[in-house]
Amino acid sequence: MVRAYRPPDFQSALTIMRENRAIPLAGGTDLMVSRRRWSGLSPFFAKPVLFIGHLEEIKRVEIDITNIKIGSACSLASLLEHREIPEVLKIVISQMATPAIRNIGTLGGNICNASPAGDALPVLYAMDASVVLQRKAEIRTLPIEKFITGPGETVLKDDELLTSIIIPKKSYNVGFYRKVGTRQANSLSKLSFQGLARIEEGKISDIRISFGAVAMTVIRSREIEEILIEKSGKEIEKLIPEVSSLYSAVIKPIDDQRSNIRYRKTISLKLLRYFLRTVLISKIG
């Protein structure tokens, strides 16, 4: 049996996917650990593996007037070095794993892994990112929240590859990210909070709030965000209890032993209030 393919280009990779339903391996930093056997043995894969980490077509960053398009196989480290990548995304990536993992691990791998603790996800949800999926006969684009359906679950078909991530260009003048984990480096985060906003003339003109690793998938509620639009500092102060209890109702923490349910929820809501009161209101002045 053929155990692995190393296609010369992206089109050949799609052909191999169609004919073999292979497992794509970009950086392998997730796969090599989850499929690991004891020392000295190659990891175990039930299906052939398709190396995609070297394919130039999916390692590019392209910019146009409205969007930033990031190739799925761009390493996390390469994005930190890229001038056009939004600062809010860089802040998140710089806190992921360690330098050696970031040199190899890819953005596409983090998304396709669909871990509730995937650190790149909350900021991508907040920025309204979409994913471009391609197979031999079809290309489709989906919002990231439609792509990820549960822990480790996506709508990716078995002959399909994620080719790029599209982020609409927007300018935020408030950004706040906190990751609460057991150890600074390398810890898969216990929970994370992402807040982004644009303040214009003393009022909020745009706001996005997302919570990572507290539920089956990232939590973001456009309905609750809507309540805060066009509000001044004073109005937000008054709305904090209401907004906080609305989020409390949508946050349904998963208990996977890394941290108990109540702790996750309490910290998440504390971060929310800190963001609204201390970060946002003080910025509005």
């Binding site: 392998g28 690991r36 190396f51 330098p99 993992i101 040199n103």
Partner: peptide
């Protein structure tokens, strides 16, 4: 053997990487 300790570090194109989680085909 799982990307946590760095004793298997090598330089790939001048940058550190953990050889325990890189398949040689990559």
């Amino acid at each position: 053997g799982e990307g946590e300790c760095g004793t298997c570090t090598v330089l790939i194109h001048g940058k550190i990487a953990y050889s325990c989680i890189i398949p040689v085909g990559a």
